[in-house]
Amino acid sequence: MSDTAKPLGDAEIDDKSKRDFLFTTTGTVAAVGAAAAAWPFIHQMNPAADTLALSSTEVDLGPIEEGQSITVVWRGKPVFIRHRTSTEIKSAREDDKKVLPDNETDAERVKNPQWLIMVGVCTHLGCIPLGNKGGENKGEYGGWFCPCHGSHYDTSGRIRRGPAPTNLAIPEYTFVSDTRVKIG
């Protein structure tokens, strides 16, 4: 305002291209700043440090007898741990040769054939399939059956019939010892 009565002494701002350069630079710097400032407000929704710290869980397999399954909670989701019978292992391996909706061999899905460990969440829309407890409907392939929309899983947890697109997911896990497994 008060400076308008006298020349600024800046020859550069008379030059339109230099003026445009100033505007573009400022706009770019401001845009970069705005984008950077947005990040903390987005990233805060990602899992917090305490949530991540609890993302592994150890399970004692000792008490689970052959033919039994248990359900443990890992990252808020059920994980099915099944001590498979030899019949189940055999039937799973036989089906390896068939054409399946989501081709995977049984060997690819287990580290130790006796123990099938997978996330108990139907890959269709997230319901929990039946079949992990005695007396529940195990579906047409003797594995698991999701009652929400009728997906059938076999004894290796592979999708065989129904709307689910993929096999039940296998979480990261390692055997700490013969009878202890660490999931996550």
Binding site: D3, T4, L8, I13, L22, F23, T26, V29, A30, G33
Partner: peptide, 16 residues
């Protein structure tokens, strides 16, 4: 950024 915005303001207000 503030220095740049100050320049921008000066340039824009120059002809007032």
């Amino acid at each position: 950024l503030t220095a740049l915005l100050y320049r921008v303001k000066k340039v824009i207000w120059r002809d007032v």
